[in-house]
């Protein structure tokens, strides 16, 4: 349970950090909060030859709403979201979601961007970013900033669209106006455990009808997924218990959960139905 040897760098600015990542390629890993990376190193599932510790870089901890986007810097910690970081439905959703992420000591060090870079299938922030249609901003040495849409980011378990030498420097989420309502629900056996299933939803209402709907599911294995069929059933509907049930049924019917030591696939499918209904109820569809 001791990490293998590595070289350690603590650059003072972003240019230095991406230069180190360029130099070391696939041998180099970014160390931010370390709350997922260090356990995988302790198990020697990860054996990076070089760690680039970004904690000493100024200006990466930003959390600011500009031009309709909430910009979340690479060092914004989970705990920063516990009180609403922006007014309206987005800040409220993030504050609700964060209480489900591990435990307070983990939340004080772990970072939002780190969760997206790690891409655990049961990551709350990954499912949330997917549901909201977020954008990931990547920097690499000597290149323009690259942006990747959340729907193109997640490729599989712990696998993303990041390229060797790139660093995830910011995630952008759309700021939601008062016409939006959101919900989040997950099921885990013990407080702070990885969820067996979770659902996040965001809905836009106009004159009493649902005009836009997005639902993402997580914890099912692989990567977070959009429940497109479920979201489609809501369009044009009046928020109601019947609409919620139909959407939850569609989410359960079309998802593809994995079986593992924690739960069989059919149990997860039942949980998807229940979590989708709970998330929708929070968003006023009940």
């Amino acid at each position: 349970m001791k990490p293998a040897a590595f070289d350690y760098f603590a650059p003072r600015n972003l240019d230095e950090a991406v230069a180190l990542l360029a130099k070391h390629g696939e041998d180099g890993r970014v160390l931010a909060g370390g709350q997922s990376l260090v356990p995988t190193m302790a198990f020697r599932m990860a054996r990076p030859a070089v760690l680039v510790d970004i904690n000493r870089i100024e200006g990466l901890g930003h959390l600011s709403a500009q031009e309709g986007q909430l910009r979340i810097g690479a060092l914004a910690r989970h705990a920063h979201f516990e009180s609403a970081v922006t007014p309206g439905p987005l800040g409220a959703l993030l504050a609700r979601v964060v209480r489900h992420i591990a435990h307070p000591p983990i939340r004080m060090r772990g970072t939002f961007c780190g969760s997206l870079a790690h891409a655990d299938p049961a990551s709350e922030w990954c499912a949330t970013t997917l549901a909201l249609g977020g954008t990931l901003v990547l920097r690499s040495a000597g290149a323009d900033t690259r942006e990747v849409a959340a729907r193109d980011w997640f490729q599989g378990v712990f696998t993303t669209a990041i390229r060797p030498g790139e660093m995830l420097v910011e995630v952008r989420l759309p700021v939601l106006g008062p016409e939006w309502s959101c919900g989040f629900a997950e099921f885990s056996r013990r407080a702070g455990d990885f969820a067996l299933a979770m659902a996040v939803c965001a809905l836009r209402l106009d004159r009493g009808l649902i005009r836009e709907a997005s639902i993402a599911l997580g914890g099912l294995g692989g990567r977070p997924v959009l429940a497109l069929e479920a979201a489609a059933t809501l369009l044009g509907q009046v928020p109601s218990a019947e609409a919620a049930s139909a959407a939850a049924e569609a989410a359960a019917a079309h998802c593809d959960p994995h079986s593992d030591v924690h739960a069989p696939a059919e149990y997860r499918r039942d949980l998807v139905r229940a979590m989708a209904r709970r998330a929708l109820a929070q968003a006023g569809v009940a």
């Binding site: 370390g34 709350q35 060090r109």
Partner: peptide
């Protein structure tokens, strides 16, 4: 801040 000291490296404590 409460910190799990197994998830932080000694060099980070500078």
């Amino acid at each position: 801040q409460p910190t799990r000291s197994c998830l932080m490296f000694g060099v980070q404590a500078e």
